[in-house]
Simulated assay, not measured.
Amino acid sequence: MRLAALVFDRAAEGVMVTDTEQQILTVNDAFSTLTGCTRQDVVGKKPSLLRSEKMPPAFYAEMWDKVNRVGVWQGEIWNRRKNGEPYLEWLSINTVKDKSGKVVNYVGMFSDITKVRESQQRIEYLATHDELTGLPNRALFNDRLHLALARADRSRESIGVVFIDLDNFKMVNDTLGHETGDKLLRQAAVRLLDCVRGEDTVARLGGDEFVVLLVAADREQATVTAERLLIALSASYQFDEHECFISASIGLSMFPEDAADANSLMRNADAAMYRAKDHGKNGFRFFSADLASQAGKRLALETGLRRAIDTGSYSSIISRRSGWKAIPWSVPRLWYVGPTTVRSSNRWYSFRSPSKAI
């Protein structure tokens, strides 16, 4: 009996013992620590004094029905401490019977799992959201895009994918620091949300790239949204003693006109965004058929340049510092800029590689 009493008092879990009328007979020290209630506060009263408003009456009816039928119940339950603070606990209720099989006591054992649940929820949240801005991340956006496409296909509606790249963000980051850059990204995220409807989705893909899903939106509505986005993002950003301005390059791709699947819509919106950048930034472009071939050429160009630089085959890109020549595979004209940088049309390509003169 002394050992049982010692275990009762030293247990890490809170323990409560009641009679068959659910009158509390005793509690242990851990109970007082977890709830803030002393023995004097609860003995002679019912466990319902700890109930929170988070659990409906039907929950308790089902719980006690199972205790009476099976003799045991366990699960999560929201209760409240003496100061009124709600907390989540893992509770086990067991019946105690005498030699004749008659129930004489109920014993409840519980532990506070509030912090555990908060950690789990945090992990789940970060799996689907961007930590900096709180916006959905690429994974959640892709899920919503696939669902939207399925609905749009059934209802014969249009949807739009809007790629957004912040112009000159790197300059802000390099000049004012990453902390200011993060503040700008958070402000930009708020502005993006203010420009779309509740049923639309704004996500951050990473860095200074965002994407918007416009559901049940035609080309005209997408145009209005793009114009609204440009105005919002180009307004002044205030950071204590600093003020800065940026702009955005925006590309749009529409279902079903431009593509019939999620990957193609994303790829086409990205290509249209690069077209907007090539035309001076601070603007938007819709995807068009000629962009598809240009995107393929750009990919071939970048892959070929990367391969040539990685293998040191600079002669296959540019013959001499004094001029240019077309490389063996079909790409636009190239100009020498430096050992790891070349220019094609209006786009610049920079690569990391060992320093080597051409």
Score class of each variant (00 low, 15 high):
M1P: 15
A11L: 13
G14D: 01
M16F: 03
T18P: 09
E21N: 14
Q22A: 05
I24A: 11
L25A: 15
L34Y: 05
D41R: 05
G44Q: 06
K45L: 06
K45A: 03
K46G: 09
M55C: 03
M55R: 06
F59I: 05
D65S: 11
K66A: 06
N68V: 01
N68G: 03
E76P: 08
E76V: 09
N79K: 14
R80N: 05
R80I: 06
W90A: 10
W90H: 10
D98W: 00
K99N: 04
S100F: 09
S100Y: 07
I113E: 07
T114I: 00
S119N: 11
A127D: 07
H129S: 00
G134R: 07
P136Y: 02
L140Y: 03
A148M: 07
A148P: 13
A148G: 10
D153V: 09
S155L: 14
R156F: 11
E157S: 14
V161T: 14
F163R: 06
I164F: 11
L166A: 09
N168S: 14
F169N: 08
V172M: 05
V172G: 01
G177E: 01
E179K: 09
T180C: 14
A188F: 14
A189S: 15
R191P: 06
C195K: 02
C195V: 06
C195P: 03
V196D: 15
T201K: 08
R204F: 08
L205G: 09
G206F: 11
G206V: 11
V215I: 10
D218C: 10
D218K: 14
Q221G: 15
S236I: 13
Q238D: 15
H242T: 08
C244F: 15
S247M: 05
P256L: 08
D258E: 04
A260C: 02
D270L: 00
A271C: 03
D278C: 14
D278E: 15
D278P: 04
G283P: 12
L291C: 01
G296H: 08
G296R: 01
T303N: 13
G304Q: 01
L305I: 13
T311K: 12
R321F: 03
S322L: 02
K325A: 04
I327S: 09
W335Y: 06
Y336D: 11
V337Y: 10
S345N: 02
W348N: 10
S350K: 03
R352A: 13
R352M: 07
S353E: 03
